[in-house]
């Protein structure tokens, strides 16, 4: 029901002020003092608001008094790389898939029943259950039925959807370091995913070079992250390039590029590709990230 048009629009504008209300809005010292404080989340609202701008509580009412046991924090959450979505995990089995799953990823690279994430004894495991496009942890593909323990901050890729695990640290034990140490000693039935040994001589499959030759990367069979931010496998110091811009996958018989919903897009031979969709590329193709043009060439 559209109520008073002016009011609605005003609320919309407040909504679209994205960054102001992350975290604890009540604690923001810069907020206006005059207004209605929400009895639930303590956000200060302009006098004209009907609903709290942050939690949506009806400001003319009072919350029920009886002590509702409020949400225990979930033991772990999965967040998207851009931080816009959060999936709370519960203790036990959490299904991951495109349909009727706990972690619902409605993208066509994700299988209907893709994987299962198990939370038990404050440990988190992932298992691929026969998905079409596979599940990757730290860049390595899981074999179906292989159960892998995940550590805090682990990057898990389902199809082409990347999620990051964030463990909730139990507040009563602040010694998180100790926990990480024990977590590394994987149980016998679990396979430790080790980072790729750098010493091993991997076969060069292609080369990615800039027109002026200042950027040059030799590519082997693996997945490369591309972006402006340090920490990417291929760093492009171009302000028009997004922090996490694209992913380059070099496989046995196929090379593909996935634009990670970058601001200015990824172009293959001058044509902008669809975000979040793997696009096959070949030797000789020209890839554009922001204003930077890189060419995919045969190794030597």
């Amino acid at each position: 029901m559209t109520d008073d048009a002016e009011k609605t629009i005003a609320a919309g504008d407040v909504y679209s002020e994205k960054t102001s209300y992350v975290g604890q809005p009540g604690a923001e010292p810069t907020q206006m003092a005059v207004g209605i404080e929400c009895p639930v989340c303590h956000t200060s609202n302009p006098p004209a608001e009907t609903y709290c701008m942050d939690c949506g509580f009806l400001l003319t009412s009072q919350p029920e008094e009886q002590g509702v046991e409020l949400e225990m924090r979930p033991p772990a959450v999965l967040v998207t790389t851009d931080g816009t979505r959060e999936f709370a995990l519960h203790v036990g089995q959490n299904t991951v898939g495109r349909q009727d799953a706990d972690v619902l990823l409605t993208h066509n690279t994700v299988s209907r029943k893709h994987a299962v994430i198990t939370v038990e004894d404050s440990k988190v495991y992932v298992e691929d259950i026969g998905s079409t496009n596979g599940t990757y942890v730290g860049g390595s593909k899981l074999n179906p039925g292989q159960k892998v323990e995940l550590t805090d901050g682990a990057e898990i890729v389902f199809g082409n959807q990347t999620l990051i695990l964030k463990l909730t640290t139990p507040s009563e034990e602040p010694s998180t370091k100790e926990e990480t140490v024990t977590a590394q000693e994987a149980p016998v039935e679990c396979v430790e995913i080790a980072p790729e040994p750098e010493t091993q001589e991997a076969e060069a499959v292609a080369k990615l070079i800039s027109e002026d030759g200042t950027v040059s990367h030799t590519l082997t069979r693996r997945t490369y992250s591309i972006g402006r931010r340090e920490g990417n496998d291929i760093v492009i110091p171009d302000p028009y390039c997004s922090g996490r811009h694209a992913e380059l996958r070099i496989e046995e018989d196929r090379m593909e590029i996935v634009d990670l919903n970058s601001t200015n897009g990824t172009l293959v031979n001058g044509v902008r590709i669809e975000p979040n969709n793997p696009y096959e590329i070949r030797i000789g193709d020209q890839l554009t990230f922001g204003q930077t043009v890189l060419k995919l060439e045969a190794p030597q």
Binding site: T8, A11, G12, Y15, V40, T50, Y51, C55, G56, F57, L58, S61, Q62, P63, E64, Q66, V68, L70, E71
Partner: peptide, 15 residues
């Protein structure tokens, strides 16, 4: 929808 103290809330606005 996450748990919260009982009461009336606008959970979403659709534009």
């Amino acid at each position: 929808l996450g748990p919260r103290p009982g009461g009336t809330y606008r959970v979403a606005k659709i534009e």
